[in-house]
Design a protein around this nucleic acid. Structure first.
Length: 271
DNA sequence: AGGCGTTCCTGGGGGC
DNA sequence: TGCCCCCAGGAACGCC
């Protein structure tokens, strides 16, 4: 399940290859993959468009053209990679971009949750997303204010993209474990000091994960290479394994409708 | 306000 | 071995 570090990894990998390339066309293999536009509209807006930048906002991959952007959300099983002309399409391809001078940018998605969006700019995405946790402007004060101003389950809050952008199930669990906060804590009951610690840990964990090219769970990979952060995980997927901090065993519970891994001894529940 | 259920999807794991 | 059932989950949406 691609989260901020995995999406950033994809961007880092494809940006040098895509930048300044011209997109001849975008083809939907599975019709519903275009979320807010049609093939005709894509032809009209993107045809022979030159890619001027590739970046990330929240969990979206942003491909910038002169007048428009294409935003791609990988959701659970989406993959984006380059394919040479002689190579065959995977059975899971839901869309592809034909590049001028050869090659295709492939969007594969086994579960078909991933979508492609066409916008003028990132405005519509910015509107429904909170701050970027790795931006300098995202201060501990902002996180404290965010968490203290809500009376919510902390894990649900961290997963809510309109609160903070980019965290998903894996990094929310890892961040809460490292910060010794139980995911069923109520946000406004968490002490300021704990939130400051959580703030630091979110930054550390996301930064390290990007350096390791993300986490490979199920089948996220970039050009066949696995993300090495899988080796750094401390709680996610570690059911019955001994906690790195104490001798307690990691358990799996359900929080905010998600499978959640915790050390019930280390992580304090603020209620 | 916020929690919860539902929807979208399909591979794969568990049970028998 | 094979078949069926059900689960996993990010985000949007409706309901209470």
């Amino acid at each position: 399940m691609p989260e901020l570090p995995e999406v950033q990894t994809v961007v880092n990998q494809i940006k040098p290859i895509l930048i300044h390339k011209t997109v001849e066309s975008i083809t939907p293999v599975w019709p519903k993959v275009f979320h807010n536009f049609t093939s005709e509209k894509a032809q009209q807006k993107i045809k022979r468009g030159r890619i001027i930048d590739v970046s990330r906002r929240a969990k979206f991959i942003i491909i910038k053209f002169t007048e428009n952007i294409i935003a791609i959300h990988l959701r659970m099983t989406g993959k984006l990679y380059l394919l040479r002309d002689h190579e065959t399409l995977s059975k899971y391809t839901t869309a592809y971009f034909t590049l001028k001078n050869g090659g295709k940018l492939i969007f594969d998605d086994v579960r078909k949750f991933g979508r492609i969006y066409l916008y003028k700019n990132t405005g519509p995405i910015d509107e429904r997303h909170g701050p970027e946790p790795l931006e300098k402007s995202f201060t501990s004060k902002i996180l404290i204010n965010l968490i203290k101003s809500k009376k919510r389950n902390i894990k649900a809050l961290l997963l809510d993209q309109s609160m903070i952008a980019g965290l998903g199930n894996i990094y929310a669990d890892e961040s809460l474990w490292k910060s010794k906060i139980h995911p069923n804590s109520l946000s406004h009951k968490i002490p300021k000091k704990r939130i400051e610690n959580l703030y630091k840990n979110i930054k550390i964990i996301l930064t390290n994960a990007i350096e390791q090219n993300g986490t490979t769970i199920i089948d996220f990979s970039v050009n066949g290479k696995s993300g090495k952060y899988t080796n750094e995980l401390k709680v996610y997927g570690k059911r019955d394994i001994k906690c790195f901090n104490c001798n307690n065993h990691i358990i799996k519970i359900r929080v905010a409708g998600r499978g959640t891994y915790i050390c019930s001894k280390c992580q304090k529940k603020y209620k």
